[in-house]
Amino acid sequence: MKRLLPFIIILIVLAVAVGSAWYATRTTPGSTTVVNQPSPASPNQPASTARPAPLVGLPGAEPAHTLGAANAPAHIEEFGDFQCPPCGMLHPILEKMHEEFGDKLRVTFREYPLPGHNHAVAAASAAEAAGMQKKFWEMHAHIYEHQADWKNRYDVAPIFEGYAKQIGLDVERWKRDLSSEQVAQRIFLDSRRGQSMGVKGTPTAFLNGREVPFETLMAPDKLRAVIQNEINASGSR
């Protein structure tokens, strides 16, 4: 028995290690928080009872950059930083939700460039300046989809200028707008709104004014479920 003991200990540790890794990859840690999300409301009861009140916060830049119908029953407001890798991962997820839910879902993007990211403000400005020519979402998509190409570069200005050309902007006007007071003000207002709503990191998103847990946000199935819940709840109201 004494001779076998070390091997038994090693096998036990191996089993625990593999088991916990397997368990953690198949159940996302946020699964308990989904339970706390609004469940489909019963017909007689308004969905908003027993839920935290929606956050209002200070106003952000107006008009906000939105997709979907203005009166959509579900509204996701994302505070994002273009240089943040998980924000880049969230981009295709929200795009998919927008496609799936159509006019039932409104998606708003708010600028929240983090001080730790050296190009975050430059990227936010590039997108906002594109927004002055009604092409915010095109630039937004380009910057996120090519995040790996510019994130670690020293000089990102020529890269963003290339995107401006690709999406068909008036590049001279875009360059002037980059350093305009209006663009700076939009970024400031969005970030101040984020701070007033308690945003500490990115991406942080609010669904009808209530923060979506990070793990729910990053998992399309869970996100789809909470959005659907909001839509169902609005129908029975």
Binding site: A24, T25, T28, D81, C84, P85, P86, C87, M89, L114, P115, G116, H117, K200, G201, T202, P203, T204, F214, E215, M218, A219
Partner: peptide, 12 residues
């Protein structure tokens, strides 16, 4: 593996 990298915070 799950691709759910941690959120970016005020400090990178």
């Amino acid at each position: 593996v799950t691709g759910r990298s941690v959120r970016c915070t005020i400090v990178a």
